[in-house]
């Protein structure tokens, strides 16, 4: 079965991103397909490559990046939500004339249409939020 996962909350503040990660991992282990993981609202902050969590804690961004690499996951950060919150990839940095970017290369920035498309193309869309 094909799933799209929508995450609405940032890392560490709320369990949503952790729950979504555990769900995604379990779904893949059971042989399901993850069509897309979509990061919206404050969840765009999960994509920062600059976070430095304590050594004995999980690194949520790296966890997602590793899962994505192993399973060829499509992880999309909403561009409108990301711009509002200062989350930029290199292209956006250049286009907007900013002096830095912060998005981990395992994630890509795109529009909200990607979420709607996820709902259309997947058998189930599941939301993790506050």
């Amino acid at each position: 079965m094909k799933f799209t996962i929508l995450i609405n909350e940032g890392p560490y503040q709320h369990q949503a991103a952790d729950s979504a990660y555990q769900f995604a991992k379990a779904a893949l282990e059971k042989g399901h397909e993850i069509f897309r993981v979509f990061f919206y609202n404050d969840a765009v902050n999960n994509a920062t490559r600059l976070a430095i969590p304590p050594q004995d804690d999980r690194n949520i961004t790296v966890q997602w990046a590793e899962l994505a690499e192993q399973n060829n996951l499509d992880m999309v950060v909403c561009i409108a939500a990301a711009q509002r919150r200062g989350m930029l990839d290199d292209d956006e940095r250049d286009r907007q004339g900013k002096d830095a970017s912060n998005i981990h290369p395992a994630f890509r920035i795109s529009g909200l249409g990607q979420l709607v498309e996820g709902g259309i193309q997947s058998d189930r869309l599941i939301t993790f939020g506050d």
Binding site: Y40, L112, G113, L115, V116, E117, G119, I120
Partner: peptide, 11 residues
């Protein structure tokens, strides 16, 4: 904002 975008998908 998602609702507005969804209008473009003929759903």
């Amino acid at each position: 904002e998602v609702v507005l975008i969804s209008a473009a998908f003929d759903q």
